[in-house]
Simulated scan of single mutants.
Amino acid sequence: MKFPIGLRLNAKINNITKLGFFVTLPHHHHGLIFYKDFGDKWESAKNKYNIGDEVRVVIINNHQGKISLSLSQVNNPDLIDPTNEFKESKDFAPLVSLVEDANKKIANLKNSIELSDQ
């Protein structure tokens, strides 16, 4: 299995050290969530997670088979998941229009309810 940058997947924590969390990825590959990924919350993260916990991670580097992972960047839109079938979608105008129309209808309903209560 290839592990391209941006790929999101589940990993199982198998060791917690001073360097970070060593995890097992699918197909018996391994990776590291470096302690700096947690910033100043590293100490609390060590207490929050346990060996055996499953976490959602994103691949941030894969150099010569050494896979660097991140928990904090899982929702980073700049790390595009190459397996996401919608990665090329940039046209959100129809959705924005739909939300705006819904918000207008909600406002009208609220106004009509307030008028009927008077």
Rank of each mutant, 00 (worst) to 15 (best):
E85V: 14
I5N: 10
N14S: 10
I67C: 05
Y49D: 08
P4I: 04
F86V: 14
K87F: 02
T83S: 07
L115Y: 07
D53C: 04
I16N: 13
L71R: 04
V57D: 03
F38P: 07
R56F: 12
K104Q: 05
F86G: 06
G39Y: 15
N15A: 14
H29V: 14
I113K: 10
N47A: 12
I5S: 06
K48H: 15
K48A: 07
A102I: 04
G20I: 00
L9Q: 03
L115A: 09
I16H: 14
I16S: 05
R56N: 13
K41V: 08
D81K: 11
K2N: 09
H29R: 15
A93E: 10
K41Q: 13
N103E: 12
L69V: 08
E100N: 06
L71W: 00
K104P: 04
I51N: 09
D37L: 11
K87Y: 01
S72V: 01
W42C: 04
I113R: 14
L19Q: 11
A45V: 00
Q118N: 14
Q64D: 07
E43A: 12
W42V: 09
K46E: 00
L32D: 11
E88M: 10
G52T: 07
D91F: 01
V55L: 01
T24H: 03
D78E: 09
S44M: 12
L19E: 12
N84W: 01
D101R: 06
E88W: 06
K48E: 06
D37P: 10
G31V: 04
G39A: 08
E88K: 04
K110G: 03
K105D: 06
T24A: 05
K12L: 10
K104F: 14
I60E: 06
L7V: 05
K105I: 06
S97R: 15
P82G: 11
A11N: 07
S44G: 06
P4E: 01
K41L: 13
A93L: 12
P82W: 01
S89A: 13
Q73Y: 11
D117I: 08
E114H: 09
N62P: 11
D78G: 13
A93D: 14
I13E: 09
S112L: 15
E43R: 14
E54R: 10
P82N: 03
R8S: 02
G39E: 11
D91G: 13
E88I: 07
S116F: 01
M1N: 08
N14Y: 15
S70F: 01
F86K: 15
V96R: 00
K2Q: 14
A11G: 03
L98I: 04
N10H: 13
R8I: 04
S68W: 08
G20M: 03
H27M: 13
F38K: 05
V96L: 02
